[in-house]
Design a binder for these strands. Structure first.
Lengths: 330, 330
DNA sequence: ATGAAAGCGCTAACAG
DNA sequence: CTGTTAGCGCTTTCAT
């Protein structure tokens, strides 16, 4: 019997005049139950409003029907959109998806991983690069794992990522092609992984990129505005800037407007992601569209594959290209 | 010993030459352990990279250190911001926060509640009105519960909410005061609870509000644009519109621009929430600011209070006023 | 077609 | 200060 007034499987069994085993089996359909018995049990379950304790169930069966998504920042559209894709991919298979934010704090992250790893059937972690983020425990414990935004898969985990290097290069080329001479880059809070590769791509495309023109924001809209302001107030301001995300880019637009710097005439701005707001700001933002939702969905498929197969599976890598969406800011 | 190569508390105990009880206690500090023993145990724990199984722990101790937030839609800034506030409120107390999206689907919601209720120490549910959303199981099972956006607390749950009626009235009055005659209202996917009360407030402030001017969107940006287009294309278009959220309002702005309807000259637009983007669209959006983060934080406090007290606690209600932020769209 | 009983990995009385 | 012993509520052999 369950404590605190909660009804447990034993209560149901007693009331229905069967064993707990039988109740368990009508619930799981893992072995045939006589139709009459089954009906009776179901009736009692409804009557008592019995709901199995997921914790006990999970403990015994070693599966939870839950998967976790860890993101650095819930307020970022890329992440919520990826969450959406992930959710849509796993829900039909009976998994539900819980998401938790790390705030980019390593301790929180480690803690969350610890807490969650024994409560879910698999995890996808966004903005994680092995060696940077503490994913080793997950790999050691053989928890199905997919890294969103990491570049290279490894033993025990798959990755889904953007063609970040190419995307960075493409954005820069677009700017170079329209005659921009001093092209800056405002990065986000993360200076490794995908963001770093975008910067490398940019460097490959811009001859003698001025290091002073590459600066790091905290990834927020205000952060983007602050960085843009700093760039604009410098002795030799840029005539174009690539921003690590649309959120940052919109902040940059804001700072430019504040200083009456005309976009795109005096300053070209390119973002990343193609979030909803991108089309709606003034001027509409040119951006490298990343298929965030597809990223999430792909991560879900990869994760399910790992969950379903008892054996070791070979690490897989899914790469999505980013596409230039030309609007008016560049 | 734990299966599948995972190290369990028994492994640690054996290796350290102590009982599992002792290991458990060095972990929980719930009773003194000799410094030497403690050190030895800690050493073995590190050596074996032991991590307690949260599931087993929770099952035994009836506490999980986790709380869940259920939201209709993760992509809505109000929700992510509330999530942030909630997280900030409970993390210092040792709780981590998992969020899950229901997509406004009743079945998913019921399912998620079922799944999560036995895995967390408490839940906060956004956009839920008792009687509409299936929260009864939570109340019956005495799971600490806070409803975000519901109006009246009840036995077993607290609420934190906006002064929605007042806010709706205030927005409408602002429009009336500037001489608007045909004031519309674009609502969201939810037509009960807070949103409904905003509409009531609006009705109280607008004499003979034309029912044809109150229409329902799906709460998305595109939805807002579609609804605005419909309103604008009608025989007698509105000269002002209140939108249930900034997201919807930005969509409305978009539709207006599409049709070359001048805002605010020919059409005033007011949103709700004061999201980041509100200040950055063109024209900058006038909006009823809701303190989403504070909502989340308040929900966290309320929840902790319920979790901490073994007894019944009297239902509490926290109301935040919305404040008019005047920009240029109205 | 059904039951009895043995745990899943841990914590918490209850002893020393 | 430390160990022994019951379970938490469920699933799953192993019997019947």
């Amino acid at each position: 019997m369950a404590r605190r007034g909660r009804v447990g499987i034993a209560d149901v069994a007693a009331r229905a005049g069967v064993s707990v085993t039988t109740v368990s089996h009508v619930l799981s359909s893992r072995r045939p139950v006589a139709e009459a018995t089954r009906a009776k049990v179901l009736e009692v379950i409804a009557e008592l409003d019995y709901r199995p304790n997921e914790m006990a169930r999970g403990m015994r069966s070693q599966r939870t029907s839950a998967i976790a998504l860890l993101v650095p920042d819930l307020s970022h559209p890329f992440h919520t959109s990826a969450a959406r894709g992930l959710q849509d991919a796993v829900r039909p298979k009976g998994y539900h998806c819980i998401v938790s934010a790390t705030d980019g704090d390593g301790d929180v992250e480690r803690d969350l991983i610890r807490q969650l790893m024994t409560r879910v059937d698999g995890m996808v972690i966004a903005g994680a690069e092995p060696g940077i983020v503490a994913v080793q425990p997950l790999i050691d414990a053989e928890v199905p794992l997919v890294l969103l935004g990491a570049d290279i898969p490894g033993p025990g985990f798959d990755v889904v990522t953007n063609a970040d290097y190419d995307a960075g290069a493409m954005a820069a080329h677009h700017l170079v092609d329209q005659g921009r001479r001093r092209i800056g880059f405002i990065t986000g809070s993360q200076d490794f992984g995908g963001p770093a590769r975008r910067v490398e791509g940019y460097r490959s495309a811009v001859e003698r990129a001025d290091p002073a023109l590459v600066i790091r924001s905290d990834g927020s809209l205000e952060g983007g505005a602050r960085c843009m302001a700093r760039l604009l107030d410098a002795a030799e301001p840029p005539d174009a800037v690539i921003c690590i995300s649309d959120v940052v880019a919109i902040g940059a637009l804001y700072a430019a407007r504040d200083r009456s710097v005309a976009v795109p005439e005096d300053l070209a701005v390119i973002g990343f992601d193609d979030i909803e707001a991108a089309a709606l700001v003034t001027p509409p933002l040119t951006t490298m569209a990343t298929s965030s939702r597809e990223h999430g969905a792909a991560a879900g498929e990869l994760l399910l594959r790992r969950i379903d197969s008892a054996e070791q599976v070979e690490p897989r890598r899914v790469v999505f290209p980013a596409t230039l969406v030309r609007r008016q800011s560049a």
